[in-house]
Design a protein around this nucleic acid. Structure first.
Lengths: 130, 130
DNA sequence: CAGAATCCTCTCTGATACTG
DNA sequence: CAGTATCAGAGAGGATTCTG
């Protein structure tokens, strides 16, 4: 709902770029990338993720996992043990996404200081402006 | 405020990865990537961007540009013409970010169908589950 | 263990009106 | 032209409670 940018009819390729927005929206999920990264290392169970991430609510974990599963990035496997056991694992598709997002992590680490510097400069001059 | 994941003390590298989150949060700004992409092609003025993007509100454009400027991704240049003219341009830092995000665009375009397929399958089976 | 359902708050965002 | 200020609605997300 409300895919405004998709309706834009400008000749610019970036504007009408819907698939990109879909992906970016998933990436922007505060926890999605984090979970994907964890699952890329090894499959995990629900409460295991809940404990590992620590800061995520049960609701958000549930919701995020559901989204990731829906997009085909992770699989959900239920083992009919006594207290039911559910394991989440990354898919091949999810793995390619994780691999694509990874450079962003490196960029962030590399340019983090530059960004912080820019912010400090901006805030300093903005203080005088206001 | 509320940087929960930063507070997590797990041994996993992904969890405490703050710079990544900062970058992802900026990327997740619905319009930030779009604007950055436009400015990467050529500098633009405020209303020019407003008209080009078409679907963004003036408020969001203003806010997003301010954020991008604060992070050092774009510059804001005021020309003291009769009705004041403001030009926004991408910086070198912004350009490296745009370049890093670009693979994500390609990934999105390449795997968009796979994601849609996964969603359809999920929705179909979910219908039976519910 | 692995969630679903409920409540409630707080932010994001759009629409509208005003300014230099 | 290039914004800022204000109001109001929608939705994200946390805390808590309950279930199979």
């Amino acid at each position: 709902m409300s895919w405004a940018p998709c309706a834009a009819q400008t000749p610019n390729a970036y504007v009408a770029d819907c698939p990109t927005r879909v992906v970016l929206d998933r990436i922007s999920d505060k926890w999605a990338v984090l979970i994907l990264g964890l699952l890329a290392e090894s499959p995990m169970r629900f409460n295991q993720l809940l404990r590992t991430i620590q800061g995520i609510s049960q609701k958000m974990l549930s919701k995020t996992l559901k989204n990731l599963e829906r997009d085909g990035f992770v699989t959900r496997t239920v083992a009919p043990t006594v207290p039911v056991t559910v394991e989440y694992a990354i898919t091949d598709l999810g793995r390619t996404l994780a691999a694509t997002v990874d450079p962003l992590r490196l960029w962030a680490q590399t340019h983090f200081d530059a960004v912080l510097d820019a912010q400090r400069r901006y805030d300093a001059s903005a203080a005088g402006t206001a």
